[in-house]
């Protein structure tokens, strides 16, 4: 039934749920399973930012009230140093917000895929090891860290490498790869993780047009397949408009939504 509801209905429904919980926090004890071929988009809100102020010693973005829906692709725009990365790191749970709250029902393990500006790859490990690390989060946290993965996950790792055209360099250490190849590895690692939300901080960087196009195509294809939400920080406005269906712009410490960029 929930699939028949539109976004406004869902928002209203969620408000009722929030009120009924009394604490203003949506908690799903047993979140829908991720992974496998039967991954479905969630019929609840993905993530809610309420009265969120982010920054370090000083507030960078004030009073954010936004909702990110399942399957959304959001691009965050703004000048350098304005707080885009800080906002993303706050959503990723890496830093505490100065005030306000973030509500989501993602599992702590594997629910969030984060690609930082510097990609966050293990430079001395092989491409395969890096991608396997993403797949590892689909097993219980009690799965011994020195155990190899089972064959179904290994197959997923191979498929992700094929999708991003990096299967030929599977055994190369990441440190010797080009910037474009490293980006593909970072994306493959996040995609094989099958997260509910992917937070990518300028992950297209200064890639050339052809590389950008092929990476975006591959990413969007898999993101659609696994039904994840994609939030990315972009410096190139045209590129952001092309990729995203929602644009958030940070201006004067405020987050402004520009609506559907395809309109």
């Amino acid at each position: 039934m929930l699939k028949l509801l539109n976004r406004n209905d869902l928002l209203a429904l969620n408000r009722i749920i929030l009120r009924s919980h009394g604490v203003g926090c949506l908690v799903v004890e047993n979140p829908p399973s991720r992974g496998g071929d039967n991954v479905q988009k969630l019929d609840s809100e993905s993530i809610t930012l309420r009265g969120l102020t982010v920054g370090y010693d000083e507030a960078l973005v004030l009073d954010i009230n936004k909702t990110i829906y399942p399957g959304d692709t959001i691009a965050i725009l703004g000048a350098s140093g304005i707080g885009k990365t800080t906002l993303m790191r706050t959503i990723a749970g890496l830093i505490r917000p100065l005030s306000g709250e973030i509500f989501h029902d993602y599992p702590r393990r594997g629910g969030i895929g984060y690609i930082p500006q510097r990609l966050g790859l293990v430079r001395h490990s092989s491409v395969r090891s890096n991608i396997t690390l993403g797949a590892r989060t689909r097993r219980s946290k009690w799965y011994p860290s020195w155990y190899p993965l089972d064959s179904s996950l290994k197959e997923d790792v191979d498929n992700a490498m094929k999708a991003l055209k990096i299967e030929d360099i599977a055994d190369e250490p990441v440190r010797i790869l080009s910037g474009g190849q490293q980006r593909r590895v970072a994306i493959a690692r996040t995609l094989v993780q099958r997260p509910r939300i992917i937070l990518a901080d300028e992950f297209l960087g200064e890639l050339d047009k052809d590389n950008v196009k092929s990476i975006i195509t591959a990413t969007k294809k898999i993101v659609d397949e696994i039904g994840a939400t994609l939030v990315l920080i972009e410096h190139h406005e045209e590129r952001a408009i092309e990729i995203a269906d929602r644009i958030w712009r940070i201006v004067d410490k405020k987050l402004i939504e520009e609506g559907d960029s395809n309109q």
Binding site: R89, G110, R118
Partner: peptide, 13 residues
């Protein structure tokens, strides 16, 4: 920090 932060966000033990 970057690989550690990615790992933390991913929920690695």
């Amino acid at each position: 920090n970057a690989p550690l932060e990615s790992g933390m966000a991913m929920g690695l033990t």
